[in-house]
Amino acid sequence: MSMAKRRTYIATVNASPRQDTPAILVSGLRRRFGAIDALCGIDLIVPRGSFFALVGPNGAGKSTTVRILSGLISRSGGQVRVLDRDPETDPAGLKQLIGVVPDFPAVYGELSPRQNLMRMCQLRGMDVDETLRRAEEITTALSLEAHVDQPCKTLSHGTRKKAVLAAAMIHAPALLFLDEPFEGIDPVSAHTIRRMLEQLRTRGVTVFLSSHVMPLVESVATHVAILAKGSIRSAGTLEEAIGSHATLEEALLATLGGNERLPGLEWYQP
């Protein structure tokens, strides 16, 4: 990003809250863990109502980005506005407006999905009857009925992930952060979740998703950013990201470069 463009960008970030501002504005975001630079000054614009996918290889910095944007960890530098709030200075206020599926099981293992949902809604100050109604509906939609009263720690990874997704959606947030939401989810459930997210997007919900499952991303995303080694390699609409390539996966490989020097493994002779 050029300096002039960057100045305009930062000015936008610091501007007073407006309804037509993007859902997420990131400028020069940096995060350092000890001697390692996890994010080296990334810039992002996520329009309201978009389905934004952050893709990239393992260790690219996707989860770190999600954590910073959702107020879970602090940043080392740069400017961030999420729904016109700074996640670092007002994390509690921001979390009231967003839903997060982090990369760890954000539910109490001793409690069932239903109990987790009830308690989390209580802490969000929601009405009990309304919570019950929504819990019933969302667990049915996610095919959780059979497990709704089992302790979460006894559930499979995928089922637990669905419980976390339900907890992230039950308060109807305007912005959803999903860190690898399809990891460990069976194809049928993944299809259901994908349709559900598409439905939410038509109602104006912004979805920020990090994933490395390219076919799924390609089928739902409206905007894509490719992240590698803490830097944004390309960003734009899905069509722009795919460009002249046949698929998003090909575009990603072309951007990042595949491992051409594949070893022969001649010693592997069973």
Partner: peptide, 13 residues
């Protein structure tokens, strides 16, 4: 850390 806790995603101070 706090970021690994189930409560971290809730609007708590």
């Amino acid at each position: 850390g706090l970021d690994q806790h189930p409560l971290s995603i809730l609007p708590l101070r």
